[in-house]
Structure formats: C-alpha cells, structure tokens
Design a protein around this nucleic acid. Structure first.
Length: 334
DNA sequence: CCTCTCCCAGGAGACGGG
DNA sequence: GCCCGTCC
DNA sequence: ACATCCTGGGAGAG
C-alpha cells in the first residue's frame, strides 16, 4: 500500500511537512485507527511456535483465533499508557478496490485456494490455508466487544475505514489518523501519524505528516495532489513508464490536472496503460474535472476519478455522518 | 537530473523475566 | 538493553 | 506471511 516515492517527494519538495517526534509528545491526542488493518496484521503476525514446527495462531478452546484480541489489547493498553486516546474505525461496506490490486489479490487467493484443494500433505494444506487468511466479521465483532469493555470508542464507517478516519480528523473529532499508509493523505486527514505503535523503547520515532503543509509545499490543490498520487503510482492503478514522482509533480504543476497531463503526453514516448484515466480515453466522460470534485458527496475517494465508468459507490448519506459524529463524541468520555 | 531495475538486508505484535 | 519464550 | 513476503536503500545503466 501507499504512494510510490511520496515520502521522499514530500521531504524534497515540501520541506517541513514531515517531522519526527517522541511518542510522549502526543499525550492527550485522540487518534483514529483503521481497525481492520490492525486486525489483519495481528492475525498474520501473532503466532506461536514459529521456531518449532507448527506456526499457529493463538486460539481458544474451541479452536477459534484469538491473536487479534491479544494484539488489540496490548496495543490499546500501550497507547492509553502513553496518554494517547485511540478511536478504532471499522470498515463498512467493502470499498470498491480498484481493479488492479483487487484482481491481484483475488488471483492470489484463488491460486492458494486451488492449491489447497490439490494439496495432499498436511504441511501444504497448512501452508496454503494460511494464505487465505482474512479478517472476518467475527474478528471485528470480537475486537469491538473488547474495545467497548475497555471503554475505548469504536466507529462503524459507512465504507472505507481510512476515509472515515480522515473525516473524523477533519471534523476535529480526533487530532490525527494513525496509519502506516500514506494513502490516508488522499483522504485529507489534517495530520497523519506513522509508527505510532512503536514506543519509547523502540528505535524509530513517530513520523508526523501535515497535510496542509504538504500540499502548500507542493503548490497543489487537493485535486491536483490526488492526481499526483495516481501518477506516482498507487495500489489501484498501473503507472506510466518513465514518469516518477519528480516528473509527475512537474507535469501536474504545468497542466493542472491528470486529464490534461495525459492529453498532452506524447503517446509514442509514453505508454499509457489501457483503460486509464479519462483523459486517455477517446470517449470523454462528461467533464473530467468535475469527477474529481467532492461535490457528489463521496468522501475522500479522490482516487475514484479513474473509475467513473464503474458503479459509483453509493455515497455515504448524511445519516452516516451524524452517526459517526455521535460515536466520536463517546471518544471524549474515554 | 530522473527513472528503472536489480540486489540485498532487514523487518514483519507486544510483553516481560533473566 | 538484549534475548527469547510466551500470549490461547 | 516466518521453510515467506514485502519494503526500502543503494548501485548502476539508460
């Protein structure tokens, strides 16, 4: 996940938008965290007996996974100990992941699936079974229950958790989004905190990115920033060979939008992937520029301007906005 | 100057006793 | 502070 | 996904 070379680009072109600090300097801050992402990592990472034979997840007497409970518990305790107030945000409707990454995951998953069925040895079955790991509804419910018992606020996002985290931050309900994924900036979270899980005892400090300083430093609008990220290469689209972060920035600055950039490119020199941005498509879809505006009610999903032909995700209705706000109020009590 | 490719090292959750 | 064993 | 897999940094060519 992430935007290729974005961290370096920001360091080079928007100096000051990234800074590092001790965990202790965030005492008292409320931070929104994508719960599903955390759960997935815990389920993958927390295993016992990795040195011996069977690398197994932690389970209860019924054989159900409990790694995620252990992980969420420890991490939450750690943050609370440091005076940081987490707000866990759970995914709602599965996001319309873009064709690229989604297809890739699907392919990998199906490959594992078929290999699992073909597997004869116990080892193989175990091996391929692991590749099918995913966060289930039950895992999420377990975590929600735990968090509620701990008095930690939980938010149910209408769609993508990352987008919701950014909205909470924009609304001032939390101070920042805690994530390892720079994609969060594309949802306009005012502050992004990386390596928040590493404590004082650990090596790297917390990394803090200021969204406003970032786009100001780059000299771009929000829409242009999203376009830049797409050009740099994100999870959802292929990149154009020969165009890296520096060139992408220059192009967006010069032409103003990704549609204009693509239009102006020498197609003989640069291979634009099939089915790319509308500007590359002979059939113009309405007004390209408007597709990137947030006026349709879609939160964040700026990157969705490339999928305007697909079923547009039903926009998060106002009621969801209120619901999340209410939930976040509880954060104040914690 | 910028990008691409290749290679390789390191990390992949957190705690706590020794 | 590091090294590992442990967490279920 | 720990008998693997992914990422980031550096070298070197185009």
């Amino acid at each position: 996940m992430g935007i290729k070379g974005l961290t370096k680009l920001l360091n080079d072109e928007a100096p000051g938008c990234i800074k590092e600090a001790e965990l202790s300097s965030y005492t008292g801050r409320k931070v929104a965290i994508d719960a599903s992402m955390a759960l997935y990592q815990f389920i993958i990472a927390i295993r016992s007996g990795s040195e011996g034979f069977a690398a197994q997840v932690l389970t209860n007497e019924q054989g159900e996974i409990t790694s995620h409970i252990q992980g969420i518990f420890n991490r939450t305790i750690r943050m609370l100990t440091n005076g940081i107030k987490p707000v866990y945000v759970f995914d709602g409707k599965p996001p319309t992941l873009k064709s690229g990454e989604l297809a890739k995951r699907m392919a990998r998953r199906q490959e594992a699936q078929s290999k699992l069925e073909a597997a004869e040895s116990v080892e193989d079955k175990e091996k391929y079974g692991k590749r099918l790991t995913r966060v289930t509804r039950k895992h999420s419910e377990d975590a929600m229950k735990l968090l509620r018992l701990m008095g930690v606020p939980v938010v149910q996002a209408p769609c993508e958790a990352e987008a919701q985290c950014a909205e909470l931050a924009r609304a001032g309900k939390v101070w920042a989004t805690g994530t390892e994924d720079m994609d969060a900036l594309c949802f306009r979270t005012p502050k992004l905190l990386r390596r928040l899980t590493f404590g004082a005892a650990n090596k790297q400090p917390v990394m803090e990115v200021d969204y406003q300083k970032a786009i100001d430093g780059l000299g771009l609008t929000y829409e242009q920033f999203v376009d830049l990220c797409i050009l740099c290469g994100c999870d959802y689209t292929d990149t154009i060979k020969g165009i890296g972060p520096k060139t992408a920035l220059k192009l967006v600055r010069t032409h103003g939008s990704i549609a204009n950039v693509v239009r102006s490119l020498d197609k003989k020199k640069y291979q634009v992937p099939a089915g790319w941005i509308k500007g590359s498509n002979p059939a113009p879809s309405a007004k390209p520029d408007e597709a990137t505006e947030g006026e349709d009610g879609l939160e964040g999903e700026g990157a969705s301007n490339k999928e305007n032909s697909e079923k547009n995700e039903s926009a998060p209705p106002e009621s969801d906005e209120k619901k999340k706000a209410e939930d976040a109020e509880k954060a104040d009590d914690a």
